[in-house]
Design a protein around this nucleic acid. Structure first.
Length: 203
DNA sequence: CACGGGATCGTCT
DNA sequence: GACGATCCCGTGT
């Protein structure tokens, strides 16, 4: 079996560095014996209390955001537009509500299952390009929010399979869909693998 | 290819 | 009661 990312990885304080480090790691799910895996190719960092784009801006604690205040390694999944389940990794130490949104992945195992879940007949980038579509492909829902990915029996986790992503392959730019976030709009907190056909938007 | 709108509902005001 | 860290499909060029 492959090694899961551990606490030392997830509690790193610099969420931007952590978000770029997640590129090349492998997101896995297993439910009812059904296994899927995919390499992370696009992420966005949300810098907790200081970040106007974050749900936890100004340390806002609500029933929804409460899980973001856990130590790193928990899953934060929320419903967007009433339809899409967006998957985040909580990062940093306890009470620091940083999170990384996974925006796109490259399928590895369980591709047929992903296609079935997405109601697609061909393998195309739109199978997993975009935070809503990748959750559908992996079977991730809001029911998984608050689960500890460091727990051996969690339905979702992240592995290190030693895929090497060279620094020059890592691109960065503004995040998507947070036009309301004022001076945080233009910060380069989105990261993706250069020339990957699996990212949600090229740039 | 660029846009424009509809879907759909939990969450917060 | 308004809106969103999105996606898909339709229309027009």
């Amino acid at each position: 079996m492959y090694k899961r990312l551990g606490l030392d990885f997830f509690i790193q304080q610099n969420v931007a560095v952590l978000a770029s480090s997640l590129l090349g790691k492998v997101l896995c799910t297993k439910q009812k014996g059904l296994f899927t895996s995919a390499m992370i190719v696009e992420t966005e960092a949300y810098q907790g209390p200081e970040d106007k784009g974050s749900h936890a801006f100004r340390n806002r604690r609500t029933q929804r955001t409460e899980t973001m205040f856990n130590r790193g390694g928990f899953a934060y999944v929320y419903l967007c537009y009433g339809i899409h389940h967006l998957f985040n990794v909580v990062t940093g130490p306890e009470d620091v509500p940083h999170a990384v949104l996974i925006r796109a992945i490259q399928p590895i195992e369980g591709v047929e299952l992903m296609m079935k879940r997405r109601k697609m007949l061909k393998i195309l980038p739109k199978l997993t390009a975009g935070p809503g579509t990748l959750s559908q492909a992996l079977g991730i829902t809001t029911a998984m929010t608050g689960t500890d990915m460091l727990s051996p029996d969690s339905p979702v986790w992240i592995e290190d399979r030693q895929y090497q992503i060279e620094p020059e392959q890592i691109m960065s730019g503004p995040r998507i869909g947070i036009d309301y976030a004022a001076d945080w709009i233009d910060r380069p907190l989105r990261f993706w693998i250069k020339d990957s056909i699996w990212v949600s938007r090229q740039r």
